[in-house]
């Protein structure tokens, strides 16, 4: 009789397990446990947080045009109409050559600088990996200094470089943070006592205030800055407004240059006096 009871129990168990799967949708939920890696959504919408590069890299075949403007210092007042007369303009084209690798060319007015860069994504944030890791390297050539004024000038003196490792994490839907250890090389320093090789650390973040708007801020601390330097560490605070294929970034910064060797080494303003208003406009093709 005992054995029969066991069999009876087994029968019921059998019925139960089959019954439990009666709801087709529940059955699908079990099936659909996805095995492929699902990447987190990107930490930043634009390629720059404000001045600092973000971990966004153009997708393969995407062409971006950046127009960046930094007006002159606001505290110049009516003399320059709050900086309108002394604007620094940068035009940049960025193209995704492979998946996760972009190249770009740019020209900015300040120090008549030509620049090119390469940016590559090494890791993306997913359930299995906590951060995005991106490498960035840029070469700048300033063409404002003339040989008739400086006879000993060599071409190499016009060059400056910046290399950055960008590590970001989308902490939640609204808040993303980034750290950017940076190495800057200035072949020509603007102050004779300043070191040519400079180590810096950038910090940036964004906070979304609505689906298409976010407050962004970034700051770079330059460890190699000489104590007598007139230049400051750049702090940039901005507002991102995204509309379809465009991103508008309105910002205030104490640096007028938008290139890394420019704003990390030579931010000429300070937040208690000389602040620059500016914007970046991004258009994707």
């Amino acid at each position: 009789m005992k054995r029969h009871l066991v069999l009876l129990a087994l029968t019921f168990l059998c019925i139960n397990t089959v019954n439990a799967q009666d709801d087709l949708l529940n059955e699908l939920e079990d099936e659909a446990k996805t095995k492929d890696i699902t990447y987190e959504q990107p930490a930043f919408k634009a390629m720059k947080i404000g001045n600092l590069q973000s971990t966004k890299v153009a997708a393969k075949g995407e062409l971006y045009m950046y127009v960046s403007h930094r007006f002159g210092a606001l505290n110049d007042g009516f003399d320059t109409f709050f900086g309108l007369d002394n604007a620094n303009t940068k035009i940049q084209m960025v193209y995704g050559i492979f998946n996760g690798v972009q190249i770009g060319m740019a020209r900015e007015s300040i120090r008549k600088t030509y620049s090119s860069h390469i940016k590559a994504k090494f890791m993306s944030q997913s359930k299995d990996f906590p951060v995005n890791i991106v490498g960035y390297a840029t070469v700048n050539i300033r063409t404002d200094i003339k040989e008739d004024k400086y006879p000993l000038l060599q071409f190499a003196d016009r060059m400056s470089y910046a290399t950055q490792l960008l590590v970001s994490r989308r902490l939640n839907n609204k808040f993303s943070l980034e750290l950017a250890p940076t190495f800057v090389r200035q072949n020509l320093v603007l102050e004779p006592f300043q070191k040519h090789n400079q180590i810096a650390l950038g910090v940036g973040g964004r906070y979304k205030i609505s689906k298409r708007m976010s407050i962004n801020a970034d700051y770079v601390y330059n460890f190699s800055r000489h104590e007598d330097s007139i230049y400051n560490d750049p702090l940039t605070i901005g507002l991102d407004i995204e509309t379809g294929g465009h991103v508008f970034q309105l910002l205030f910064s104490n640096a007028q240059s938008t290139n890394e060797p420019g704003f990390i080494s030579n931010a000429e303003g300070d937040w208690f006096g000389k602040v620059f208003f500016g914007f970046n406009i991004v258009r994707v093709f």
């Binding site: 699908l28 939920e29 996805t34 492929d36």
Partner: peptide, 28 residues
Amino acid sequence: STTAILNTNTGEFAALLFIKSFHFDIAL
């Protein structure tokens, strides 16, 4: 990668998909 299931005894049908698995030509 849509999962779908059909009960051929009753005609009941269910389907499930992940929104993030929708693939666009334009990444942006």
